[in-house]
Amino acid sequence: MKVQTRIRWWPWAAVALSLVVAFTLSMISPRDDVQGELVRIMYIHVPAAWLAYVAFFMTFVGSLTYLLTKNLRWDRIAAASAEIGVFFTGLTLVLGMIWGKSTWGVWWTWDARLTLTAIMFFVYLGYLALRRTTDDPVARASRASVLGVLGAVQIPIVHFSVVWWRTLHQPPSIVRPDSPAIQEPLMLITLIVGVVAFTIIYISLMIKRIELTHLEDQLTEIEHSTDQPVAGEAVVVPELGARP
């Protein structure tokens, strides 16, 4: 087995550059009339939410293509994207809670989008947990891809049901979000740059994460192919008559 020797550094550089640009713009863009400085949280919250959706969509594409082609490359894409998606969904939820607490005084509102994001977080957390249960790449890929498709197909129905549920029970007006009106062009630019920067970060992380999955699969293959004691080092044959 030949180990992949080329180490790609540019994804890390791209991540760092995107973060610096996005951060600088978020700090110099003007304050909002309604939200004040708190509007700056939007420049990371919205791109993180956007990335979560992109990542889960890629998991769906990877899972479906794997089921049709049986090419493990697609399963790796699905797996990498799911992990990044769970990370960004978690980040979106935490940032949303911080924004909510600072603006409306509550950590959580039963807003349809927030509820849906929380549900998605658990769906893909389950997906990652499922992947951890087996080492065999092919069995893991088949199982995970069925779940990847099931999860993605259910999400529109979940979305629909949650939105519908919320329209029947309007939340109290104190916790209704006042979405910041984007009056200044610089605010819009900052938001767009944020989304672009996070997309670059997503692509870079995907490249590194797929590389990792590839290496881990190689490692599993080596472990299974070489002659090793069946129980490994965990079990030691008791020595008869040995002193304690």
């Binding site: 549900i119 998605m120 658990f122 769906v123 957390l125 389950g126 947990a129 499922l130 951890r132 249960t133 087996t134 199982r143 069925v146 779940l147 099931l150 999860g151 259910q154 129905i157 979940v158 629909f160 049901s161 949650v162």
Partner: peptide, 22 residues
């Protein structure tokens, strides 16, 4: 999906619960 994996019994409720929201 999780059949014959060791974590099966604990994993199924985690997978089903969010999908059964509708």
């Amino acid at each position: 999906i999780v059949n014959s994996t060791t974590a099966g019994t604990a994993l199924v409720p985690l997978l089903v619960a969010p999908l059964s929201v509708p």
